[in-house]
């Protein structure tokens, strides 16, 4: 469906993205993940032809965005970051304009506007000025625009940014309903959003593609390195003594004391799963485990780990 071949873009002295290569197959729903400023938006702008790369190319269904930009852009529905819209047009006028600009004609225009308005639940605001629409509506207007000429590929840059929880839910449901007919690339910096929608993740950091794989493999990679949090029914001293005897525990730290027992946070030695070992050790020592689980990693921590690992690999 779409291939990014060594996309590189530099802004003056600061670098934008460098050598981003991946391909997305038909029907996939891929999430771009990365902290703000990592290069997600730049990559998307290169894919849509808004920006031209210093090096590399993006190819959509065998059409190069550099060689035949008009044809390539016809295949893409794009929702830019912050969803810019013309405030002083009505929703209907805006969609009419976008339909015409994207090459629809005559009856088709009216039909498509009705279709997408229905689909994105914006039919009730068609006569309203965009400037007076709520953020949730505006987001759906942007998605309606992306869908208006029924392109095979949708590129959505942070589609749920700045929405309230109900609107986020609504927008996600809308995106999920599009999966059947469209290939979708979306970006987000929220891990749970990826899990809710995407099947594959592209992790971008400091302008480079750091990880490309299914969410399961990503989760596995992240989870195995994760620390274990355990609460034992004993005093802190005994707990510490017990844990220090477990071979695969690299180090452990006492956590603030819970109402009962003592809590610890354990770091495994070889990024393996150490829960089983902890269980048997405690069983042998007759120390009841009140709670045990993998520490949920924040996205930031996950990033730190993945990027640190990358740096180590490069060094060795």
């Amino acid at each position: 469906m779409i291939q990014a071949r060594g996309l590189t873009k530099t802004y003056g002295s600061s670098r934008g993205v460098s050598d981003v290569t991946f391909s997305v197959g038909k029907g996939e729903i891929v999430g771009f993940l990365g902290p703000n400023g990592a290069g997600k938006t730049t990559t998307m702008r290169l894919l849509t032809g808004y920006l031209y790369p210093n090096d590399g190319d993006a190819v959509i269904e065998d059409i190069s965005i550099l060689e035949r930009p008009k044809d390539a852009r016809k295949l893409i529905g794009y929702l830019p970051e912050n969803n810019p819209l013309y405030e002083d047009l009505t929703v209907g006028e805006y969609l009419d304009f976008r339909a015409r600009v994207k090459g629809l004609r005559g009856r088709e225009i009216k039909k498509r506007i009705e279709d997408v308005a229905e689909r994105c639940s914006i039919a009730d605001v068609r006569k309203k000025l965009i400037g007076s629409c709520s953020k949730g509506y505006r987001q759906r207007i942007g998605i309606a625009d992306a869908l208006i000429n029924d392109p095979p590929l949708l590129i959505l840059d942070e589609p749920t940014q700045g929405l309230d929880p109900a609107q986020i839910h609504h927008t996600r449901e809308l995106i999920k309903s599009l999966i059947a007919e469209h290939t979708i690339i979306l970006s987000t910096h929220i891990l749970s959003e990826m899990e809710a929608i995407c099947t594959r993740a592209l992790l971008i950091h400091k302008g480079r593609l750091q990880f490309d794989g299914t969410l399961d493999s990503m989760r596995a990679e992240l989870a195995c390195q994760g620390r274990v949090k355990v609460t034992l029914l004993c005093d802190a001293e005994k707990g510490a003594g017990l844990l220090s005897k477990i071979a695969s525990v690299e180090k452990f730290e006492a956590e603030p004391a819970p109402p009962r027992g003592a809590a610890f946070s354990l770091t495994p030695k070889d990024s393996g799963d150490i829960r089983e070992e902890i269980f048997w050790k405690c069983f042998d020592e007759r120390v009841p485990i009140l709670e045990m689980g993998l520490e949920k990693q924040s996205l930031e921590e996950a990033f730190l780990m993945l990027t640190r690992e990358q740096a180590l690999e490069e060094n060795s």
């Binding site: 808004y50 930009p69 008009k70 794009y78 810019p84 013309y86 976008r98 600009v101 994207k102 090459g103």
Partner: peptide, 14 residues
């Protein structure tokens, strides 16, 4: 200023 140039420049127009 409004950023709408991005939707305009990514539409299939020269």
């Amino acid at each position: 200023k409004q950023g709408t140039i991005e939707t305009l420049l990514t539409a299939p127009l020269s």
